[in-house]
Amino acid sequence: MAPSVPPIPATLLALSLLAILSLATAYRPWPSTHPNATDLALAGSKKFEGSSDFVHLRYHMGPVLTNNITVHIIWYGTWQKPQKKIIREFISSISASPAASDPTRRRSTVAGWWKTVQLYTDQTGSNISRSVALGQEKNDRFYSHGKSLTRLSIQSVIKSAVTAKSQPLPINPKSGLYLLLTSDDVYVQDFCGQVCGFHYFTFPSIVGYTLPYAWVGNSAKLCPGVCAYPFAVPAYMPQLKPAKSPNGDAGVDGMVSVIAHEIAELASNPLANAWYAGQDPSFPVEIADLCEGIYGTGGGGSYTGQMLEGRDGATYNMNGIRRRYLVQWVWNHVVNYCTGPNALDQ
């Protein structure tokens, strides 16, 4: 993809606008009370982590991110320094080598989780890049577009970040990922009711470039039981006890898994024409959607699977460079089921 993209024809733009307004590329860590077709198809499988009899993930010949990936973050709203640090260190952990002095951190790592994502290739046979680096950051602490955002106004926030007069984010269509993170006092269209995060690509007519991006919101005040499970539980399931979050911030620890979900799908389907199941690119089932809510062996339905518990009682399933995280598994198209570095059969 060239750094500068020619204008989109009016008819294509109209279709694109319709797609983003009804886009289903989203993530909810707690399974919906209204199961979708994939839930129903897999419900009877002995190994709910997946079944080649039901899942038809296909490659649609579009690009994947084979160049070294750089994640540029837009911090929208009010963020505390410790919250930013948790997320920065997670992104930095994706490509990190485990500490040789600490054998426990060589097992079940975030980098091990990314190895499944790396298995996906483009039409030349090139794999998704092993390298995922933290890029430049932009603070939008004054809520430049208000505290209630639509899917389209999210693209306007990104435009403001890449065209700012002071320290704009670099424009890197080939290997840049633009991650818009909204603080816990910001509402985004469909947040909590339908989505906890989503990804797509920006329109040249709005931003000036075609850039892969994702939005993820902090649900701590609005809907922690929906988007920060299992560190918070749904109100309609009072019998469940919330798990202790590994970094002491349920909202941000919940965000980490959603961020991971969206980055994995952006890498494997950045322009909605690469790896997904289903016939409609506007409503794709992608490599993380297939494993929604699964964090360990045996996961499926409302069961997260076998996770790890620290000496402090915190629940997690992966080690980062300095922290522990709970990260959703992703679909492995080689073995045709969901996998993660904490699988019991590895």
Rank of each mutant, 00 (worst) to 15 (best):
M307N: 03
R130K: 10
G301T: 11
A19L: 13
R311S: 08
S95A: 09
G300V: 01
T116C: 02
M318V: 14
N342I: 05
S144K: 14
Q83K: 14
L222C: 08
T11G: 09
T11R: 15
G310E: 03
P170H: 12
F191Q: 00
A37C: 03
R28T: 04
R28D: 06
G135C: 01
K241D: 09
I263K: 00
D53H: 11
N68E: 14
N139S: 11
I91F: 12
A343M: 11
G251L: 02
F203T: 02
G340T: 03
A111S: 15
T78F: 08
D190C: 00
S282N: 08
G301Y: 07
F142W: 11
N273W: 07
N336F: 12
A232D: 10
Q167M: 14
N68H: 14
S101C: 06
S97F: 14
L180R: 01
N336V: 01
P204L: 08
T182F: 01
K138Y: 03
A99E: 12
W331P: 14
Q155G: 02
L57D: 07
S156M: 07
S16K: 15
L119Y: 07
R322A: 06
T78C: 10
I321T: 11
Y120C: 02
P9W: 07
S183Q: 03
I8M: 15
K115L: 10
G313I: 05
L65W: 04
T116Y: 13
G112K: 02
G77H: 14
C338Y: 04
L42P: 01
S183C: 10
A96W: 12
T70A: 10
V285E: 07
Y143A: 00
G112N: 06
V285L: 10
P281Q: 05
L271P: 06
W30C: 00
Y337P: 08
W114T: 02
L180C: 02
Q167G: 11
L13I: 06
K165D: 14
K165V: 09
A161L: 06
W215I: 01
L57H: 03
G254K: 00
K244S: 05
S95H: 10
C338W: 08
T78N: 13
A264Q: 00
L344A: 05
L134D: 01
Y303V: 00
L266H: 08
V335Q: 12
V188R: 00
L57I: 06
P29D: 07
A235Y: 02
G301L: 07
S92F: 00
T124Y: 07
K81G: 04
S268C: 09
S219I: 06
G301P: 15
N68D: 15
K115I: 02
D312E: 08
E265S: 10
Y213E: 07
Y200T: 04
S51N: 09
V226S: 04
S97E: 15
I91V: 11
D345S: 07
K241I: 13
H34S: 09
L266T: 05
V64T: 01
A235Q: 12
L179R: 04
R141A: 09
Y316R: 02
E89Y: 09
A133K: 13
F203A: 01
P168G: 09
R322N: 08
V71T: 04
G44F: 02
T315I: 03
D253G: 04
R58S: 06
V64R: 00
S97L: 15
I128N: 05
L179Q: 05
M307T: 10
G298H: 02
I69V: 15
R88H: 12
A288K: 00
N139K: 10
